[in-house]
Design a protein around this nucleic acid. Structure first.
Lengths: 215, 215
DNA sequence: TGGCACCATCTGTGATCACGAATCCGCAGC
DNA sequence: GCTGCGGATTCGTGATCACAGATGGTGCCA
């Protein structure tokens, strides 16, 4: 939850496993309900069970993984109510983050956002689900970094993490043919300095896809 | 982050340590900047280093503890900017939670809140800082449980956790002579079904003390 | 053919240990 | 008296191991 914001120089074994697993989950490279084992992760990352367990426990604490009563670990399959709640949480946090970023959004940032948006169009045309999720999150993160609100951003990333496996399933169900239109609305609102428009565009961009999945 | 919402029957060693440390931090029984050691915690809870380290790592991930580059663990001393950001986060989340609890708040809940508010008056007159923090959080949690939004409540509790050591320092600085007046405003707004009033009362209750400390 | 019990295997848990690094305390030198 | 230095101590990290419980597959019985 914290490591995402401050990169840290620490490169301990459990950190490698944690980071690797975290991005894998957040980018939707692991489907919902998939099982993981400590020994398997240890082998995969070339470490023993101890750091693997630490990484897994941390991700369980963040809600990115769930643990059965017997200690078995798997990616969660959230209920529709939970998905909808997480989407509301995204809206709540990200609207605030965008709103705080607005007064600091100069032209260089907007250019960068437009570049990322172009990259999204590329991965979409390739039907690359993981690439789409990664680039989409990069768009949002780039904007929110300007808000200078690390704790808030960390919370938003925790929500992304919990939605990772679901987003992948969502992408498969959505017939997506172009870059998200709401990103263009976000950029337009940033250019115009239009705060109400920005809040609405972010909220819509964040909730529309997930609401379709949950409903 | 999750364990707070679903009590779980699991009573593993690292869970005992985690829960014990967590409530101790959240209730302000540990001052800011205080150091902890794995071996010390292990001795204290009667377990070895392994479960102690798991509990500590989890709390570090939640921002309740900080870890130096050499792995030393201590409670964080947040900067004023961070305190203010966490207060804003509390406002954002708790206003939403209260607003969602409002339509479900029947008379039994309001009675319970009034009882808790009475208990706050007691601990305040005893100058019992830990008791004050605990009872105050119980007031908020009781209300928010009605929102039926577990993920949102878990996030709010994570923020409380991060503010735990600071709240203790705050209490010592504040010359508090009576139960918080804004709690009475919250109860009044609940009785009247007045949503804007409720939102304002919660926001004020949550931010006033911390803003005083940070500012 | 379908269901059930049993056993081999796999899984997480926690204690212990060796290792390297950081910290702390006291002592000597200025 | 104060600062800088060196060694003893303490610290976190990660590997290994024994153990208990769950899991899953196989063969037997109805």
């Amino acid at each position: 939850m914290q490591a995402a914001v401050k990169p840290e120089i620490a490169v301990s074994a459990h950190d490698r496993v944690y980071r690797g697993l975290r991005t894998r989950i957040m980018h939707g490279q692991i489907g919902p309900g998939e099982a993981l084992t400590l020994r398997g992760l240890g082998r995969e990352f070339g470490v023993s069970m101890t750091p693997a367990r630490e990484a897994v426990n941390r991700l369980v604490a963040e809600g990115a993984l769930q643990m059965s009563s017997s200690g078995r670990v798997s990616t969660p399959e959230p209920s529709n109510e939970r998905i909808e709640e997480l989407a509301e949480l995204r809206a709540l946090l990200e609207v605030e983050l965008a709103s705080r970023a607005l007064p600091r959004a100069h032209i260089a940032l907007i250019d960068r956002l437009q570049t990322i948006n172009g990259a999204i169009a590329d991965v979409v045309s390739n039907r690359d689900a993981v690439g789409y999720i990664r680039t989409n999150l990069e768009f949002h993160r780039t904007l929110y970094l300007r808000a200078q609100a690390p704790a808030m951003l960390a919370m938003a990333e925790t929500v992304w993490l919990q939605l990772g496996p679901t987003m992948r399933a969502l992408y498969g169900r959505l017939r997506r043919t172009e870059a998200p239109q709401y990103h263009r609305l976000i950029i337009a609102a940033l250019k115009a300095g239009d705060e109400p428009g920005l809040r609405l565009a972010v909220r819509t961009d964040v909730t529309q896809g997930l609401r379709m999945l949950a409903g």
